[in-house]
Amino acid sequence: MTVASRCLIVTSSKTNNTQGMAAMTTYVIIDIQTKAQVGKVYTERKRASAQANRPDMKYGAIRYVVKSIYADEAN
């Protein structure tokens, strides 16, 4: 039997120049009036955008934005 090679698929990544490895991108929702993080950390931009749009619709204006945070920036 032969062992099949495995591949890793990363949808959102940024290359870490010091080690040459891909780092996952995370997303947070920011309240632009208070500059505070709202809610949890998301790994998919689509989910973060949907969660930011939900309170925007209740508020009636754009108050929440999605900010991407790279793993090498978090440390």
Rank of each mutant, 00 (worst) to 15 (best):
M1Q: 06
M1Y: 13
T2C: 02
T2M: 04
V3F: 06
A4R: 10
S5Q: 09
S5D: 11
S5K: 07
S5N: 09
S5I: 11
R6Q: 05
R6A: 08
R6V: 00
R6K: 11
C7G: 00
L8P: 00
L8D: 02
L8F: 08
I9T: 02
I9P: 01
V10C: 06
V10T: 07
V10L: 12
T11R: 02
T11S: 00
T11A: 01
T11M: 01
S12D: 15
S12V: 08
S13A: 14
S13W: 13
S13D: 09
K14I: 13
K14R: 13
T15E: 02
T15F: 03
N16Q: 03
T18G: 12
T18C: 07
M21I: 15
M21S: 12
M21C: 07
A22Y: 07
A22D: 04
A23Y: 11
M24G: 06
M24Q: 05
T25K: 05
T25R: 04
T25C: 10
T25L: 06
T26A: 00
T26P: 00
Y27A: 05
Y27I: 01
V28C: 11
V28D: 13
I29Q: 07
I30Q: 01
I30Y: 08
D31W: 13
D31M: 14
I32R: 08
I32D: 12
Q33W: 03
Q33E: 15
T34M: 07
K35G: 08
K35C: 07
K35S: 10
K35W: 06
Q37E: 12
Q37G: 11
V38C: 06
V38R: 07
G39T: 04
G39E: 01
K40R: 15
K40C: 10
K40N: 04
Y42F: 15
T43V: 14
T43K: 10
E44W: 12
E44C: 12
R45N: 04
R45P: 01
K46Y: 13
R47G: 00
S49R: 01
S49A: 08
N53G: 13
N53V: 03
N53A: 10
R54A: 10
R54L: 02
P55Q: 07
P55A: 09
P55R: 09
P55I: 01
P55G: 04
D56T: 12
D56I: 14
M57E: 11
M57D: 01
M57L: 13
K58S: 11
Y59N: 05
Y59S: 03
Y59D: 05
G60C: 03
G60V: 03
G60E: 01
A61R: 10
A61M: 02
A61T: 06
A61F: 06
I62D: 04
I62A: 12
I62P: 00
R63Y: 02
Y64F: 15
V65C: 10
V65L: 14
V66S: 02
K67N: 11
K67G: 05
K67Q: 15
K67C: 09
S68I: 00
S68W: 00
S68G: 08
I69F: 03
I69N: 15
I69D: 08
Y70H: 09
A71S: 04
D72K: 08
D72E: 12
D72L: 04
E73H: 10
E73M: 12
E73Y: 14
N75G: 12
N75R: 11
N75Y: 07
N75A: 07
